[in-house]
Design a protein around this nucleic acid. Structure first.
Lengths: 150, 150
DNA sequence: CACGCCTTTGCAATGAAATTGCAAAGATCT
DNA sequence: AGATCTTTGCAATTTCATTGCAAAGGCGTG
């Protein structure tokens, strides 16, 4: 993991659709050597995967919301049970167990408020062990970065 | 935007490293026809970009934290000023303006607590117009999904 | 229903890129 | 300095992306 590897990782985090030949030139290596580095980075697991990012405006699911959840019972098994339910929801794009007053934070991507209503119904019934939850509708997305710059 | 387009988008959101020939077979089209669809999806902007996702465990920046921020002054220009400062920080991976008690929510990716300390120093000085902020360290990431399934 | 118009498809040919063997160069450790 | 392991570049091969073109499909109109 040297300077060239980091350069490659940054390049690919910015744009993974570039050809190997193209990237090889940019980092100053021959295509074959460059390819072998990328393959090594993939196999080692540093590169987890490469994915297409859709423009959420042009897709459905324009509405984003954050929910903080306080559980009633705080044991590990209760936490796990709630997370399992939340994770299974397609509208839940991120789910975290956190420290503080709040126990769980969820990031939602919603088509409309009906979907939100239905989701709350499923997530926050009595059986789901939720004491309270607070919803924050996202007004503006100022930054949403998938990359970890090296 | 038909059934095949949606299929392609889902495929590419799962794994954008597959060859066109490979995907063409999966969706039941000839390579040329499949390629033209993908190109159209790119040009139309539905596919925003394709990126490599790193394994955060193997990268630096293992620590994640959420911060909710309450501003002192709530005008549009004050909001904009704070977001501009937050967005410029490399440790800030997501930044949102939200409804509710809280005004801004930030997602952080940190190397260590020194970086957190330094970041708070920069973000929450008097001049940044922050009334209060609450930090939630992320204990467990149960879900982190880049895709919007169609 | 027939016709014309526009879009999408598949085929085939071409050009570009990915992939691999191999020898040389470089790095590391003793 | 010598032995060993790794990385590199070159060249050959295979695979893939790309494009022209004609056929097929879809759609609205007369």
């Amino acid at each position: 993991m040297d300077r060239i590897d980091r350069k490659l990782l940054n390049l690919m985090q910015r744009d993974a659709s570039r050809t190997n030949v193209d990237m090889a030139e940019e980092v100053g290596l021959s295509p074959s050597s460059c390819l072998r580095r990328v393959q090594r980075l993939r196999k080692s697991g540093i590169i987890d995967r490469t994915v297409a990012i859709l423009n959420p405006t042009k897709a459905e699911r324009r509405i984003k919301a954050l929910i903080t959840v306080e559980l009633q019972l705080h044991g590990e098994q209760h936490m796990r049970r709630f997370l399992k339910i939340a994770v299974a929801e397609e509208a839940v794009s991120q789910a975290y167990a956190v420290t503080g007053e709040t126990d769980v934070v969820l990031m939602l991507r919603l088509r409309d408020m009906e979907e939100f209503d239905a989701l709350c119904e499923r997530l926050f019934r009595d059986q789901t062990n939720v004491a309270r939850f607070f919803t924050m509708m996202i007004i503006r997305t100022a930054k949403e970065e998938t990359a970890i710059w090296l």
